[in-house]
Design a protein around this nucleic acid. Structure first.
Lengths: 203, 203
DNA sequence: AATTGATTTAACCATATGGTTAATAATATT
DNA sequence: AATATTATTAACCATATGGTTAAATCAATT
């Protein structure tokens, strides 16, 4: 079905794996080369430097989720619907790329400018928070939900969804969950979060 | 008032600053030495290796917050009280050491065994989750709060409190908050989280 | 003052790591 | 088939980095 991946594709895949797992500081070009089954020189032949390669992976990683959030923000017509779409979409994505959240957050912490570059690179606003914000404010005004700062609500949602992925090893130790149990914990968590948020928003 | 710090103390302080900010992989022994105002050789004279020094900082960091959680878990008599104590205690601590959460979570992700070592090193259970667990279950049974999995509730609390510190640069960019505004956001967040959780727990 | 032991430093060392070069193999072009 | 272009490699190079050594300085002890 799928073509054999080109060398460039193999490098990107390898780089993604290594960078996401180890971060910029911990990643080694030799590791990436090994994983791609090539020579280190060839790695530099395709991507001039570690930094260049990193930029690409970082950008791609952010593009994995920002567009989805953007779409939900722009297209949602009410808060309840937004939550019911956001939570499972987001958690399923993180489920498939468990290192994604940790990677992005860490690298933004180390080089805050990197995110800014991406944001301004795009033509349309990649993160139209105002859409979400006015949605919430409208429903607060109409009495559909209790008064709440949209920024706080947004942070609630992000935190509830992302945290278990960021802190997975810690949580699975503290709660004494093996891999299977933890996956089940995450499964149950989707509904629990939706219930948790919507309940708390009742006026 | 305070004695001049000893060389050893200066090293520990410097190491804490550098490790917390850059992580094990990103930290440089030379940086630590510079920050402590000493020679790199002296650094190794006091603490044999980077690894040894790291262990100490890591352990100390965990001891910053685990005992507090432990105390709250053991001493709390009802869920509402626990929440009202936990949230501000925890957030104030993170406020004073903004890199703490990121550091601990990252290093546990990179070397999960490290936490385990600390846990078994202690005599009494450093994290008596059962105390919290049975507290919640009791109140669920008595109808004081709605049915909820204690592990989920615990993860809610952690996530809501910690996430803004983990993702601070990202959030302050997305929400367009400068340093002062972000601090105020955190201030408001304490009450908001307590309200958010207690509301959602109403039966 | 002389001696001893702890503290501190300058100068090194070995290895890891990002990156380069020059030659070779493979592929496309004429 | 000959030639040019692209892809790939082995062998290097320069620097960064964790760590060591031997000498010097300082502080206590006799």
């Amino acid at each position: 079905m799928l073509q054999d991946p080109t060398t460039e594709e193999r490098i990107i895949a390898a780089a993604k794996a290594v960078f996401l797992e180890k971060g910029m500081a911990g990643a080694r070009m030799q590791d990436i080369a090994d994983r791609a089954g090539i020579n280190k020189a060839l790695l530099h032949y395709y991507f001039r430097s570690k930094d260049k390669l990193f930029q690409i992976i970082f950008q791609e990683s952010i593009q994995t989720f920002l567009p989805k959030i953007r779409m939900l923000m722009v297209e949602s017509t009410d808060v309840d619907q937004f939550i019911r779409q956001f939570v499972p979409t987001y958690m399923n994505m993180l489920r498939m790329q468990p290192y994604l959240a940790t990677f992005i957050i860490n690298e933004i912490n180390q080089h805050p400018a990197a995110l800014w570059d991406i944001m301004k690179g795009n033509e349309e606003k990649p993160f139209p928070f105002e859409a979400f914000s006015s949605l919430v404010e409208r429903e607060v005004a109409s009495g559909a939900i209790r008064p709440i700062d949209p920024r706080q609500l947004w942070t609630h949602m992000m935190g509830l969804c992302i945290f278990p992925f960021l802190a997975r090893p810690m949580l699975s130790m503290l709660l004494q969950l093996d891999a299977i149990q933890f996956d089940q914990f995450l499964d149950e968590r989707r509904e629990e979060i939706i219930h948790f948020i919507t309940t708390s928003l009742q006026p």
